[in-house]
Amino acid sequence: MSKAGVVHPKPSMKSVLLRGSFIIMALYIALYVVYVVQQPRALGAGAIASLFNNTVPLALASAGQAIVVLSRGFDLSLAGVVSITNVVMAVYPLEGPGGALASLAICLAIGAVVGAVNGWLVAYLRIQAIAATLATMIVCQGVALLILDAPGGTVAEWVSYELTDRIFNFIPVSGLILGAVVCLWLLARKTDFGIALYAIGADEHAARLSGIPVLKVRFFAFVLAGMIYGLAGYMLSAQTATGSPTAGEPLLMLSFAAVALGGTSLSGGKGGLFASVMGAATLMLLQKVLFSSGVSSFYTGIFQGAVLIIAVMFSALLTRLGERKNK
């Protein structure tokens, strides 16, 4: 039996399109076209940068959430981590580029600590993810209130200016940071950790029998997610330039919406981080489009929810069509 005798067919075009983030990309582009038609100025570098600045906190929060969801988990501590990092940034501003770097390290460390607690509770003590992270979220919110009991404070000037600016008057810094996170993820998903993350999300038992260190992977999924929330809080502070002990709360539910909108299965093992980032971007762009269409902001939630249901139903429909073709 010669090896050359067997040629396996390449995957079909359709299955490539169905995979990953194609649907959400298409949705985003369609929405962007609508936006540009309404607001021709939206193509300017300044408008694009401001869109990025608006999007990045939620996009990063959703990216972290996506990692936990891929491992078949839930992470509510997001709201707590973003709030703590935001108030720390506002109460203890560190000036200059060095200060910004130190602040970044602090934010990442806060996220890593909270993530480690989550991971320990969920992976090693086997507490349900929703209960464990609910508890850490409540604790974190309490800590945030201790640091700053009412909205106020000022974020370091260097952070709030430089991180919302453009390089060469064109490339938004926040976009670069988001891009860096996405690129790191694309590398990470090719490591043992990334492969294991998908494996334990799809079938934890089989993964264990295949020799994957399930508990360790689950633990580090929470730690990594926590660090990304820390980064989200850092970027949120740059954008708002002030602190609020409840800054993270609006991001929590929207992060789940973004993950689902990006086609990542809430039952784990399917989807990705980039698609969730695009889901977040779509939700934020939808807000802008509605605003520029003159729709009262009170309706924003209704539209976001409706888009979510339609997108999830649509992707389920496409998956079913794809499966039928395969049989």
């Binding site: 492969i195 998908y198 799809a202 079938d203 295949s210 020799g211």
Partner: peptide, 26 residues
């Protein structure tokens, strides 16, 4: 059966030691 459904045949066969190219990247 201890195969992980959403990984490729090749990944399943080589788990838990997937060959690396550079650094930790498989």
């Amino acid at each position: 059966l201890s195969l992980v459904p959403n990984l490729s045949v090749a990944q399943n066969l080589l788990l838990p030691r997937i060959p690396k190219s550079v650094f930790f990247i498989s």
